[in-house]
Design a protein around this nucleic acid. Structure first.
Length: 424
RNA sequence: GGAGAGGUGGCUGAGUGGCUGAAGGCAACGGAUUGCUAAUCCGUCGUAGGGGUUCAGACCCUUACCGAGGGUUCAAAUCCCUCCCUCUCCGCCA
């Protein structure tokens, strides 16, 4: 959420941002409401001031047994006026909020401006794409032959868009999770969190999934609860409504959770295999930092996420998203894409975004600055480190051998009973 | 699911209709002092909105907020209603 004061004073910037993010909101209406609201508030504040003074006076007069019926009658009328103005005020606030919560965050100056993914910017790549002297298979073929994923069984259980790992597939999934968490805790200094997988609508609002992504989430029937679409939601919201001390920052967390996404509106996209599913595992990195650190820490977080693929020895590239392609709440966003020989393309395995204080304002997450003692909004950011199914795809496709076996990456061996191959 | 207790400022914890934006303590911040890794003393110290002064830092006025939302009253942290949450006990169950 943006600061209404900022919008008032920087209308041009906000308009531009809304358009760059392919969004559309009635800013004019918002500002009209805002000025009406302020006028009414000044008025009702005056009346309340008067009421407070007179009520105090009535109290004193009663003590002295002086008559004060006329004052009481007068104040009853004032009370009515106040009630009426406050009612209007409440309606205005609600209408303002309805606009305000739909205004996207303002992209950072450095973010490439553009409509869609064709305008994203190449940042860097890493590693050599493997060359095979046979026709590489894709993950569906490999996994089915190796009997490490059972797509038939998962659809019998839950329909399309779900994964059932088995045998060494399940082991690989678990190994990757442990490898990633160990890397980020031991090597990178993140604090491990295992949060609830179901959270309140307040949390969903806090990180910006609500109201915009309502249709994309699984909601618990009869409860004000949603299945998390990413660990970002519970982890970023840990200190929702709190005022931290400056010395508490930065905080950096790593969390493994499953992620649940309805993927409404993406029917027919990436239907083969497990590139796009309704439930997937992910190891997520989240940082809470001071304002000045928002961008330098994002770069570090990105490097921490990249490290996973480097250690797995999987080629990848880093892309910076253009304004039109980045999410509602982000100001800057990098995607890490792992090479998939089976499809001869790159797969997004991580998205690292910073939000400045956009999420913090929504969730009331602040910290007290040490020198000035002033309360300031925390800056939040997160990135996948990494998303599991697509990393599994990258591993088995890049490490496949002509006979259908898959070599196990060196760093995963300790997590996989020191096996050398995934084989039937 | 049943019964009870409770939700107050960064934390802890008083406060049952007016002089309470809220005692006391802790923490924090500023200062004083002590020759020692800390103690003592003094002071400051909630958040958010609106209005005003100022180049700015800052300051002044005011309103709201004691889980959320309604209501009663001239006046509500305090009384009433609804909802949410936490804790304890019982039941059930991983």
């Amino acid at each position: 959420m943006l600061d209404i004061k900022f919008i008032r004073e920087n209308l041009g910037i906000v308009k531009q941002a809304v358009s760059n993010k392919n969004s559309n909101v009635d800013l004019k209406r918002l500002l009209t409401l805002d000025s009406t609201k302020r006028a009414l508030q000044t008025e009702t504040d005056q009346l309340k001031k008067q009421r407070n003074e007179v009520s105090k006076q009535i109290g004193l007069m009663k003590k002295d047994r002086k008559p004060c019926d006329d004052l009481m009658t007068q104040m009853r009328e004032t009370g009515e006026k106040i009630k009426n103005i406050d009612r209007t005020l409440r309606e205005i606030r609600i209408e303002m909020d309805e606009i305000l919560v739909w205004i996207p965050n303002i992209p950072h100056k450095s973010a490439p401006v553009g409509k869609g993914e064709e305008h994203n910017k190449f940042v860097r790549d890493y590693g050599e794409k493997p060359s095979f002297d046979f026709e590489p298979k894709d993950h569906v073929e490999l996994a089915t032959e190796l009997e490490i994923i059972d797509f038939e069984a998962s659809s019998r259980l839950s329909g399309s868009g779900f994964i059932l790992f088995k045998n060494q597939g399940a082991l690989l999934e678990r190994a990757l999770i442990n490898f990633m968490i160990d890397l980020h805790t031991i090597e990178h200094g993140y604090t491990e969190i295992s949060p609830p997988f179901i959270v309140s609508s307040a949390c969903m609002f806090g990180t910006g999934q609500l109201p915009k992504m309502e249709e994309d989430m699984y909601k618990v029937k009869d409860e004000d609860l949603y299945l998390i679409p990413t660990a970002e939601v519970p982890v970023t919201n840990i200190f929702r409504t709190k005022i931290l001390e400056e010395d508490d920052l930065p905080k950096q967390f790593v969390a493994y959770t499953p992620c649940f996404r309805r993927e409404a509106g993406s029917y027919g996209k990436d239907t083969r295999g497990m590139t796009r599913v309704h439930q997937f595992d992910k190891v997520e990195l989240v940082k809470l930092v001071k304002e000045a650190m928002a961008y330098s820490e994002l770069e570090k977080l990105l490097i921490n996420a990249e490290r996973v693929l480097q250690l797995l020895e999987i080629p990848y590239r880093v892309i910076e998203l253009c304004t039109g392609d980045m999410s509602f709440a982000a100001t800057k966003c990098y995607d890490i894409e792992a090479w998939s020989p089976g499809t001869n393309s790159y797969l997004e395995v991580s998205s690292c975004s910073t939000f400045e204080n956009f999420q913090a304002r929504r969730m009331g997450l602040r910290y007290r600055e040490k020198s000035s003692r002033k309360v300031k909004l925390v800056n939040t950011m997160n990135g996948s480190g990494l998303a599991l199914p697509r990393t599994v795809i990258a591993v088995i496709e890049n490490y496949q051998m002509e006979d259908g076996r898959v070599r196990i990456p060196q760093v995963l061996k300790p997590y996989m009973r020191n096996l050398n191959y995934i084989q039937k």
